[in-house]
């Protein structure tokens, strides 16, 4: 259905969306790029001047940057490991015949719908509080010293909270992928003498491989910019133990008002995210042709 009439109409209908997104992307991004080469602090208005790559040099020279980069990678990697492995196991379990499957599904996916500030606060206070928290009570019941989670294992605590939020996402998508596996293929493998383990590695895993990659990439995009959970639990501390790139740039811009430095950081973050995005777009693009 391609007549000149419909194509002209189509162009008009696409125009608003394309123009808006173009503006949304290009204007702020070019401003960030411009600022990143400026000495620009909101506390000293009118003192802006061009500094070349100084902001980048400061940003990279700052030991906090490397700490933040490491923290970002640890956070993303930790959450990915937990959610991908846990999600696969959970999806396999939920794919088994059982009573009340629908309800279990609802229970499992619920955390995904909880807003980040709520889950962070609930975990921080009611579960992980060193004195009155539920975990502290559990520890005492089993005869252990309660743990002061955010003081002793700050990063691990944040990983737990974020993993709790994203495990449902991984599970739900992997379960959907699992359920599209042809029953006959499974039966054929069974007839060919495949045990549960070889069934998993030779039939199921290849079948959900693409879903796993998609989950990994999408989560990475979101996890790179984890913010609210850190803001309400540790505020990046103790020290910079839980400061990730997003949080570091937030502090530099909205707390220290150093626009130039923050912008340089923003550009670095954009470049990092783009590396992941390229892979994700490739997978989604392939799917578009199928």
């Amino acid at each position: 259905m391609a007549t000149a009439q419909t194509q002209t109409a189509a162009r008009f209908m696409m125009a608003p969306a394309v123009l808006l997104l173009l503006a949304w992307m290009i204007i702020p991004l070019s401003m960030t790029l411009y600022f990143s080469f400026q000495r620009y602090n909101l506390l000293m208005p009118g003192m802006e001047y061009f500094t070349g790559f100084d902001n980048y040099r400061y940003f990279f020279a700052n030991p906090n940057f490397w700490a933040a980069l490491t923290n970002t990678l640890v956070l993303v990697g930790g959450v990915l490991a937990i959610t991908l492995i846990g999600g696969t196991l959970l999806a396999l379990l939920l794919d088994q015949p059982m009573f009340g499957q629908g309800i279990v599904r609802l229970l499992v996916i619920a955390p995904f719908f909880v807003m980040p500030t709520v889950s962070a606060l609930v975990w921080k206070n009611m579960l992980m509080h060193p004195v009155n928290g539920f975990f502290a009570w559990l520890a005492r019941v089993f005869g252990f010293q309660p743990i002061d989670w955010f003081a002793q294992f700050p990063m691990f605590s944040i990983i737990m909270i974020v993993a709790w939020q994203w495990l449902p996402f991984a599970t739900l998508i992997l379960l959907t992928a699992l359920q599209s596996l042809d029953e006959e293929q499974r039966e054929a493998a069974g007839m060919d003498g495949a045990g549960p383990l070889s069934l998993f590695f030779y039939i199921i895993l290849p079948h959900i491989a693409r879903a796993l990659t998609v989950v990994m990439l999408i989560q990475t995009i979101f996890l790179l910019s984890i913010f609210a959970e850190i803001l309400v639990t540790t505020n990046g501390g103790p020290g910079v133990a839980t400061t990730n790139l997003t949080f570091l740039i937030y502090m530099q811009s909205l707390l220290q008002f150093d626009v130039g430095l923050a912008s340089a950081g923003g550009i670095v973050a954009v470049i990092l995210a783009n590396i992941v995005a390229i892979f994700l777009l490739r997978i989604v693009g392939k799917n578009l042709e199928a």
Binding site: L29, M31, T32, T246, Y250, L254, G266, A269, V270
Partner: peptide, 8 residues
Amino acid sequence: PAVGVLVP
């Protein structure tokens, strides 16, 4: 990433 365009 949102943080890349936060400032502008």
